[in-house]
């Protein structure tokens, strides 16, 4: 562009000079000659610029445009940031997936009337988001009680609240709440087996807990 700018500057000077000379010179042949000379000067200026452009290294004039020159982040940085966001999305999806499957498991477990399933937890594996472990939590001693509520309007099976004040607090109460009966244990194992079969998992991956 500098070459072109110089050419334009030269042309402007030549034209302005030509105009002033045209005005100042006396009428006659001299004017025609001056005009001719000025015209030749214009041609020379243009040809000189053209020759200069042809002889110069054109590639040197082309600005180098590379990504690193612009201060923009490299592809690796962009990919890393994108993958970090992608991981975030994947974690969120895994959380929703885990919640969804846990809901399904709980619904399946609740179909069994002999035990009272209260919670289900699903652990998702890192590979292909396969199910690593399912834990079903049951309440002890309340399975049938919940079912028997309602028809007669009485709430059967609700244990009386016993408040003991003293050193021997809760020995009997602890055992009653945490330890399932053999029937409950058997029913819970049956539920776990059904769930394992439903999700095509080895039976060891479905665990049961009582509370």
């Amino acid at each position: 562009m500098d070459v072109l700018r110089e050419l334009i500057q030269t042309l402007v000077v030549i034209v302005v000079l030509a105009v002033f000379m045209e005005m100042l010179l006396p009428r006659g042949d001299m004017r025609r000659y001056v005009k001719m000379v000025m015209g030749l000067l214009v041609i020379i200026a243009v040809m000189q610029t053209a020759a200069g452009v042809v002889n110069s290294e054109l590639l040197r004039e082309v600005p180098r445009v590379t990504v690193s020159d612009n201060g923009s982040p490299s592809l690796e940085d962009i990919m890393a940031a994108g993958k970090q966001l992608s991981e975030l999305s994947r974690d969120e999806a895994a959380r929703r997936y885990s919640e969804g499957v846990a809901g399904q498991v709980l619904s399946l477990a609740k179909l069994h009337a002999d035990v009272n399933a209260v919670d289900a937890r699903v652990k998702i594996g890192p590979e292909n988001n396969s199910i690593d472990e399912i834990t079903i939590v049951f309440n002890t001693g309340t399975a049938k009680q919940a079912e028997t509520t309602g028809a007669g309007g009485t709430v059967a099976g609700v244990q009386p609240v016993v408040i003991n004040v003293g050193d021997d607090v809760g020995d009997g109460a602890k055992g009653a709440a945490g330890v399932p009966t053999p029937e409950e244990r058997k029913a819970a194992a049956g539920v776990a087996g059904a769930v394992a079969e439903f999700y095509n998992l080895p039976s060891g991956q479905v665990k049961i807990e009582f509370q």
Binding site: A94, G100, V101, N128, S130, I131, Y199, N200
Partner: peptide, 11 residues
């Protein structure tokens, strides 16, 4: 992933 394979893709 049987049964729930589609759930993860949907999520």
């Amino acid at each position: 992933i049987p049964v729930v394979g589609g759930v993860f893709s949907d999520a």
